[in-house]
Design a protein around this nucleic acid. Structure first.
Lengths: 231, 231
DNA sequence: ATTTAAATCAATTAAAAAGTTGTCCTAATT
DNA sequence: AATTAGGACAACTTTTTAATTGATTTAAAT
C-alpha cells in the first residue's frame, strides 16, 4: 500500500507534463483541485462510448486504443493513445457524452480533470487554449485521414498504412505490436481478421515485413508507404 | 442498425421499472432528459474505482459484478448487480468519485442518470426518496455482512456463504455460476483461488454441492447454511 | 458477363488463460 | 512445542480464445 501511494504522490504533487507548464500557479491549482488520478489496468476501459462525460482524461503513462463501437460487436479502431495525450476533449465544449470507447493496452496512470476546469483555463489562458486547439486540429486531420482510407483505399493500402502508423508508436512502446491482436490490426484497417492474416503473410513473402510470433518488423518502410499511397 | 435502434427506443420511450412508477410526469420528464442509455458488452466496465462520478447507473437488463480494487491486482467482490438495481448511489450525495469498480458478466442495457436529476427528484418526492433510502440501507447491511465475514469467518464458512448468495442470484440469471471463474468465487470469499478449488471439491465429496464443469448445483442448502453460520 | 476485391464460413492449429493438484511455508492458536 | 488454517509456489491438465488456412459467396467494377 505504502509504496504505491508514494509513487502516486509523485504524480499528484506535480503536473509536470509540458502542456501544463504554461499555466499560471493559480491555474495549476484550479486543475489540481479538479482532478483525480486513476490507475487503469491493462484491458480496462478508459472511456465508454455513450456514457456521460464530465471530465477529460490525460494519459500520464501507458498506452491505450481508441475505437468506435458499431452494431453487433463491430468496432473500428481510431488511434493509439499515448502519454501526454488527452481523451475526451470533444466532450468539453460540445457533446455531453463520450463519442468513442477506449481501452488500455498496458497499465495506464491517468489524470481525470473535470471539464469545467479545462474550459475555465482555456478562456483565461490563450497559450493553453492554443495548444488545445492544436490538439483538436490534429485529431480532426487524423479523422479525415481515417475517413479517406475507409472511403477510398483497398485492403493492401489500408494495412500498409496502419502498419506504418503503429510502427510510429514504437517510441512510446517498443513492444506495441505484441499488444495488438490480428483482430485489432484488422479493426484499424477496417478489414476482416482473416484478410488481415492473409495480407500480412503476403507482405512477408514480398519482403516488406517480417513476422515473429505477434511482433512485426517493418523491413521496407518505403515499399509500404508506396502501397499505402497507391491505395 | 434498425432493429437495434428500435429495441433501444422501447427502453428510451418508457421508464417502466417499478422504482420510477412513483414519479410524477414532470419528474419522469426530468429524469428522461437527464439520462442516456448505453449497452455495456460482456466484460465492459460499468464503473471504475476512483473515476469521477457525475451520474448513477440503473441496470435495465443483464448482470454485473461489483468489486473493490486493492494493490497489485488484488480484488474483492462485493455483490452481483441485478436488473432494477442502481450502481453508484454513494456518489450522489457525498463522494464525487466511484468507490468501487464494476464489470458486466453479460451484455447489460443501462441507464445513466445525471446525479443532479436524482437528487432533485429525491428532494421533491418523498416516496421515491424512501425507496432510495431503502436501497442505501440494504447496501449498508450487505457491506456490514461482508465485513463480518472477512473479519470473523474462515474458509469453509466463507465459501458456503457465497455459494448460497450466488445461488440466490439464479432467478436473475439461471446460468450465473457459469459466468463466474474460480477466481471470481475466491474473490467473493476473500480466499485464494487454489483454496476455493480445493474447498469446492471437498464440499462435493461431502454431498453439499455438485460440480458440472463450471456450473454448481446446491444439493444441501441447509448443510451449507449451517457451515456458513458456524463460520 | 466477367473479373476482381474482400467478406463469410468452416475446419484446424496454436497459444493463452483457467483450473487442478500436491507440496511446502508461515502465522496464529492451542 | 505442536497443531491448524490457509496462503504461495510449481507442475500439469483442461478449456477457451486467437490465429491460420482453404473454400465459398457476394457485390462491385470493368
Amino acid at each position: 500500500m505504502k509504496t504505491i501511494l508514494e509513487t502516486d504522490n509523485d504524480f499528484i504533487c506535480d503536473i509536470q507534463a509540458p502542456c501544463f507548464q504554461m499555466l499560471t500557479s493559480e491555474e495549476v491549482e484550479l486543475v489540481r483541485g479538479s482532478k483525480t488520478q486513476v490507475l487503469f489496468r491493462k484491458g480496462d476501459h478508459l472511456t465508454k462510448q455513450g456514457a456521460f462525460a464530465s471530465y477529460v482524461l490525460f494519459i500520464i503513462s501507458g498506452i491505450a486504443r481508441q475505437y468506435i463501437e458499431g452494431d453487433g460487436n463491430k468496432t473500428h479502431n481510431l488511434r493509439i493513445i499515448k502519454p501526454g495525450e488527452f481523451v475526451g476533449l470533444s466532450a468539453v465544449f460540445t457533446k455531453n457524452t463520450f463519442n468513442y470507447s477506449s481501452i488500455s493496452l498496458t497499465d495506464c496512470q491517468v489524470f481525470l480533470i473535470e471539464k469545467d476546469a479545462i474550459a475555465t483555463v482555456v478562456k483565461q489562458n490563450g497559450l493553453f487554449g492554443f495548444t488545445m486547439i492544436k490538439r483538436y486540429c490534429e485529431q480532426n486531420a487524423n479523422l479525415v485521414d481515417t475517413l479517406r482510407t475507409v472511403l477510398y483505399k483497398q485492403m493492401n493500402g489500408r494495412i500498409a498504412e496502419i502498419l506504418l502508423y503503429i510502427e510510429g508508436c514504437k517510441k512510446d512502446n517498443p513492444h506495441i505490436f505484441q499488444l495488438l491482436s490480428r483482430k485489432d490490426l484488422a479493426d484499424f484497417a477496417g478489414i476482416s481478421t482473416e484478410s488481415a492474416v492473409k495480407l500480412l503473410k503476403s507482405f512477408e513473402k514480398d519482403g516488406l515485413i517480417e513476422l515473429n510470433e505477434k511482433d512485426i518488423e517493418i523491413v521496407d518502410p518505403n515499399g509500404l508507404a508506396e502501397i499505402s499511397k497507391k491505395g
